[in-house]
Nucleic acid binder design. Structure first.
Lengths: 192, 192, 192, 192
DNA sequence: GATGAATGAGACTTCATTCAT
DNA sequence: CATGAATGAAGTCTCATTCAT
């Protein structure tokens, strides 16, 4: 009996925190971090303003928690195709995984791309992001080398910014930039 | 005499307005629009806070003026290669002109890319930006068609997001993403 | 059996109430009443926040309870030398008892002296404090009269504020104002 | 003409800042620092809340400014009797100057004594206060030595806490502890 | 045009207190 | 009795904007 109560209250707590994070993510993504007030998040989430501070030390800590959760998703997703593959298969999986990530997590990626250019925020993103970025480029570079490309690192960078650019424009205007249609053109270009 | 005085004050005014816009652009680009206060802009520009409102109705109007000035630069730059060219030359000129624009106007493009994902701002950007975007893609598409590409519109979109992605990453990390080195890889890929 | 359980729970309760009061006193004394939150007291005492309100109606009631407990100590201590003594012995005992009180109860006296000048708090202190103060002065005055002092009431007031001043400075800086060293000078001055 | 305007606006500015400080001092002294909100100060001073922050960086900075102004008064006052005097005259002047200070500046001294026991505030008081305290005790000690007292430093400390204790009680209850009546008893005691 | 003091709405945050469990 | 999640009022502070000079 007591166990049941504890479980339920644990679930409630978790849900409440999750609920706040989801509401905040949605608002941050659509209005921007700076334009989203704590008051609005609380109102939309249907909780009192003060409750936010039971779960997060500050508005910035809330943002950080959201970002970390999002990055955790990326790492999971990257782990999927980390195994040894043929270089072509690896390129294919990178694209597929990236698109799947973005599709499943649109709000997170909108927020991420909106925020990443602001110097002040880069500090706490850099630890996680710069590392992921250089890891991806190194991996891509290895694959392009195996495929006999002339300057594999430059090819990798170009591939990376192409995927990233496509994702960014897809997030802003999904109709004009549909991932799965343009993906075919990418695969043709790289003979995947 | 009076004419001279008027001219001088006109010049002063123009210079001061320009000076404020440049100061604001630099601060917006480095700290973000929301994190830059009118007080800071005035202090950095060496003018009184109230003076801003002689030139701009509001902080948002100041941003709008900066954006419009930036877009005017783009149109000028696009006009350069608007003439009839061979499709390859046209692609080359597009890349060159874009990179030249970005290099000459780093702060504007940093600000633009930082701001473009926020729904609220998109409204007044859309009029100018969406139009430019679709114009560029249409032009690129025409060139890819002339070059015999299979799906010229998708090729154009891919080309566009690739250039854009490269520019974005260059603005964030110029050392890892040098425009002129990676440009060569682009030209090779498209046989330019 | 039931009696035993009741006794135990009664003891627990008493101890817990005492424990909360002691924790609160220590925090009030070191951080100040206003700077000490209920949350902190509960955390330091190792109990739930809500539990406080089973024992005390409010934060102010907790303070009041602490103050009353402290004053009870004073009255006990004063009872010790309330008997008939020679006037010199009475003065001596007053000093000794005061210093013993302060030494045994540093936190309470720190809190008391930090709080006593705030008008708002004086209201509920006044009932207890003003009475004690005037009682002490009256008693001292009687002793100085017996000793043949010219203006015994003024002497009593001076004696009182001297002891009080010494205690206050001792509480703030015990090294510079050691009670037992300066006590000797007092005794010499009054030929005790 | 322009000079006149400048002068007047300078005076206005100065007055406004002074006016806020005086209002704040009065409220801090009567309600306590923690119990006095910025909103109340602004309301009492008849200005907007935001204006406070044109003159003071924070509520604490406002307190600091008030304290510094108060201490400046003390130093001025101490300079008056800093010259060479007979030791008796020096003691007399110390008492007179202290009482004059307190009488002229009741609110400041109420605030000071209410605040001085709070650990957190002591940090920025210590620089100014601890120095003044030890200077006064050293000076008094010199005088008591000249007068042939046995343990001049302990005498000085006792004298100091006696004056301080009297001031504190006078500030709380001026009727029971009138400075000028009790002063006579002090002077008799020390044969001044 | 130019100044900068003044405004006031609104942001983030804290915290005593309540209440369902 | 005990918990601690939840509340909501109130506090400090920021900042775009106005206006008298």
């Amino acid at each position: 009996m007591a166990t049941f109560v504890n479980e339920r209250s644990f679930i409630m707590k978790t849900n409440q925190k999750e609920h706040i994070m989801e509401t905040a993510l949605q608002l941050f993504a659509s209005k921007g971090y700076g334009q989203t007030s704590i008051a609005l998040i609380a109102r939309e989430a249907g909780v009192a303003q003060g409750l936010m501070y039971n779960y997060f030390d500050s508005k910035e800590a809330l943002l950080l928690a959201i970002m970390e959760q999002g990055f955790a998703g990326v790492q999971e997703s990257m782990a999927v195709y980390a195994g040894t593959h043929s270089p072509k298969k690896a390129l294919e999986l990178h694209v597929e995984a990236t698109f799947a990530q973005v599709t499943a997590n649109k709000n997170f990626w909108k927020l991420f791309h909106a925020i990443k250019m602001q110097e002040q925020v880069q500090q706490f993103l850099d630890a996680e992001y710069a590392h992921a970025k250089s890891f991806i480029i190194k991996t891509l570079s290895g694959n392009f080398k195996k495929l006999g490309y002339d300057k594999p690192t430059d090819e990798a960078k170009l591939f990376f910014v192409m995927i990233d650019g496509l994702v960014i424009h897809h997030l802003m205007d999904a109709k004009t930039f549909p991932l799965h249609t343009i993906k075919k053109t990418i695969f043709q270009r790289y003979h995947i």
